[in-house]
């Protein structure tokens, strides 16, 4: 049976159970104590943003580079939390309120690493993944643009670690 890719950009609805199975089945990188914790994070399409009522969102990605970004994040996580295993799927296309746009799962022997690494993953996705969001309102639409982060920017990585480990 083909295993689900741990890292993906997809137009399909995200399936948290499948991601959990995916990290649970993945080999443990340094043969340690086994899985004792799985932390998950889902990002949803929120109804209000910056005071405006959102009708729907459209996500667009430069897919091959987004996968590169996910691979970087995966490597960064293993470097910092060697026994953690990440699954990260981001949805693209048109999404309505309450739908899941990003799903992150981290398995590790102990909960602290699972929580920290999953927080780190979402912060890094937001910093470096080439995925753009267009918000549609009742009477118009706008591309949401934040800040561009160089993936090699050490200060940005530090900020993501800081957020993950508080």
């Amino acid at each position: 049976m083909m295993g689900l890719a741990r890292l993906a950009v997809t137009t399909e609805r995200l399936n948290l159970d499948a991601l959990i199975r995916c990290v649970h089945d993945a080999p443990i990188s340094d043969g340690s104590e086994g899985t004792g914790a799985v932390a998950s994070f889902l990002g949803l399409v929120r109804e209000y943003n910056l005071g405006r009522r959102v009708v729907k969102l459209k996500y667009e990605a430069y897919e091959p580079l987004a996968l590169r970004a996910f691979e970087r994040i995966d490597n960064e996580i293993v470097e910092r939390w060697p026994t953690a295993r990440l699954a990260l799927h981001h949805r693209i296309g048109v999404l309505t309120i309450g739908e899941v746009s990003v799903a992150i799962v981290v398995a590790s022997p102990h909960r602290a690493d699972a929580f920290a690494a999953s927080r780190y993953a979402i912060e890094r996705v937001k910093q470096i993944a080439p995925i753009w969001k267009r918000e549609f309102f009742k009477d118009g639409d706008v591309w949401i643009e934040g800040a561009t982060t160089d993936p090699d920017d050490a200060a940005a990585r530090e900020e993501a670690f800081r957020l993950a480990c508080v």
């Binding site: 937001k126 993944a129 080439p130 969001k133 591309w143 934040g146």
Partner: peptide, 12 residues
């Protein structure tokens, strides 16, 4: 060669 506008993630 791809040109990438700022990504949407950077939450205020």
């Amino acid at each position: 060669v791809a040109f990438l506008p700022p990504v949407s993630g950077g939450e205020l």
